[in-house]
Write a protein that binds this DNA or RNA. Structure first.
Lengths: 343, 343
DNA sequence: CCGTGCTTTTGAATCGTTTCATTAGCACGT
DNA sequence: ACGTGCTAATGAAACGATTCAAAAGCACGG
């Protein structure tokens, strides 16, 4: 039933000093004599004083907070990126607060507004749609912004993203190195830019390798069920028409394909068919045959995003940089090379 | 290159009015004549004015923000709960900001501190360990707190949680209703309170049913791999020693068991063996045989948590309430009743 | 022309903190 | 006794929004 929050004034009164002294204890302890410092500290503890951040940052003109707006906190990519960003920010004395737009432009806008009103130091945004104008407005008002998982077409602000063409290339080259030649790509109709990029990378790897062929199979969605459907059509083929390596545009599809070919046709993975997914979701290590996959360097991306932001906060004139990471291959059993020559 | 942020004073100057008028346009538009309002609005738009939340809430003494500290944003339970909380808060004019403690008491403490300094309206906390003292301190300073997924042993603050005993009961009763009698429970050694509760519920359901027997199988961890190990030992049993219904303490274990019994022994699910998991993770709808599971009412919990908090914010004397939800059964194929009498 | 009752606008005071120019206090040398 | 050179402590000003008592503006009847 405390009447109202304890202020620095109350602390000063209780300790018998001026408010400036209390402030110095908090912010410049060295300027205060030991005796005074201890007396003030005792008053702080006794009263349960908690700094008022609003007043603090009103005076300072800036906060120690970074706003992070993600598309979906439920997505492991974003949650793990957020974790890394938090760690990196903490090392630099800042705190990350998270806003989940849930792929909804309106919610995204609301979080951006709230963060701007809170005068965060800067924002990391993985934008829903075209945030060009919005980000431009932020920048004009001097708010540092770094885009996550998306490059800024106009190079107005820094960004961290992943090269999905490289990812597709790595995946298929891996299949080729494991001795596979008849490769199938499973993905949705390439309206997604990401899927299109992965396919482009796959084509590139095929083109560099004599005697390798690529066939493209279309799935209805990026889900296990859709993958199972595609897997069933594959499983029903005659032996000589079977691919010997399949690259799926994400892990869910790959898991569906695996379920179908194992259970319907009893094909052996990787002996008869090598399989590789994309995203390296948690579950991929636990499938019946552990699934090889391609992974974004999530932690690195989170840390880099914060670093780029801090760079810009400290030197607003710093050059904007588009950092593009290559994904990495996570090799598991589903794509192991044949030990014997193919039967 | 704007020199420094635009304040309400700048807007007032540009519009040729007093600061109080600008404030009224923002907060009490009805008090201002249409002509003035439009002139001020034009100045706001022209200058790109953004309210300074720090000044605002310094004056108001309170923010419109709710702090939510979760154990792990990567966990679908928490991300979906957070989503619901955000929606509910938005309907009430508040915004939820998220802090991820990552099961780390230190990070948890940091977020609680930051939120308190920010003078959030209140906090929703899913505590790492014993936050008793900490929460007590918060409460004494008048900060409303609602615990999530944990009851307060001392009934000092409201909470939302789930009755895991009821969950275990529902699961096993469902197996019994589907005609199963030889039930196995798969879980880790019951040091986890949650696992122990689920087992207790299972025992209760068995006790109510004549002729039903329960055997407890211990897994090394709550993972797919551990489940597969248990599944393998089951699959190697003689026919007359096989259980006809298995309740796993979570979905990961159940998926592991499913993989083992399908592939090693070729048992049919649900004909030979009914299987039920717990948590209803996304993946459970996509297993080879879709997995029946028990689900926490996540959205409801998120909304209720916010409602309890708002209740307490509006009436600090409101009675604290411990709201305990019953989980719900999600029926899928893995536990369907036998159509024919058992062979 | 003045008083009355209304709406609209004004601007000083306020919130809690930090900053910084100023003052106080003290030791020491002359 | 007095100036010098320290360190330590002081307290008013400032940050930007909101509030609210007071003033201004206006219409209208007497």
């Amino acid at each position: 039933m405390s009447s109202r929050p304890v202020s620095i004034k109350d602390v000063a009164d209780r300790a018998g000093v001026a408010v400036g002294t209390v402030s110095n204890v908090l912010n410049h302890p060295a300027r205060v004599s030991t005796a005074t410092r201890e007396r003030v500290q005792a008053a702080i503890d006794g009263l349960g004083f908690v700094r008022n951040d609003a007043a603090r940052q009103l005076r300072a003109g800036q906060s120690r907070t970074i706003g992070l707006v993600v598309l979906d906190v439920g997505n492991p990519f974003f949650s793990s990126l957020a974790r890394a960003a938090e760690d990196c920010a903490a090392e630099n004395g800042s705190t990350v607060v998270l806003g989940d737009s849930g792929q909804d432009a309106e919610r995204e806008a609301r979080y951006i507004d709230v963060f701007e009103q809170q005068r965060v130091q800067g924002m990391l945004i993985s934008p829903v749609g075209d945030v060009g104008p919005r980000v431009e407005a932020l920048r004009q008002r001097g708010m540092p912004v770094v885009l996550v998982d998306r490059v800024d077409p106009q190079r107005r602000c820094s960004s961290v993203s992943v090269d999905d063409v490289a990812g597709g290339y790595i995946a298929v080259r891996h299949l080729l190195e494991a001795g596979r030649r008849r490769i199938a790509f499973v993905g949705t109709r390439a309206d997604y830019r990401q899927v299109a990029d992965r396919l482009a990378g796959a084509r590139q790897a095929i083109a560099e390798h004599d005697g390798a062929v690529l066939e493209v199979l279309e799935a209805d969605a990026m889900t296990v069920l859709a993958g199972r459907d595609v897997g069933e059509t594959i499983a029903r083929r005659r032996h000589e028409e079977l691919p010997d390596g399949i690259f799926c545009a994400n892990d869910l599809l790959a898991i569906g394909v695996m379920q179908a070919v194992l259970l319907i046709r009893g094909l052996r993975i990787p002996e008869d068919l090598a399989l590789i997914g994309y995203d390296d979701i948690d579950f991929s290590a636990s499938t019946v045959v552990p699934l090889t996959s391609v992974r974004k360097p999530t932690e690195l991306m989170g840390r880099t995003a914060v670093e780029l932001l801090l760079e810009e906060i400290e030197g607003p004139t710093a050059r904007r940089r588009q950092v593009i990471f290559d994904p990495e291959l996570v090799e598991r059993r589903s794509s192991q090379a044949r030990v014997h020559a193919p039967g």
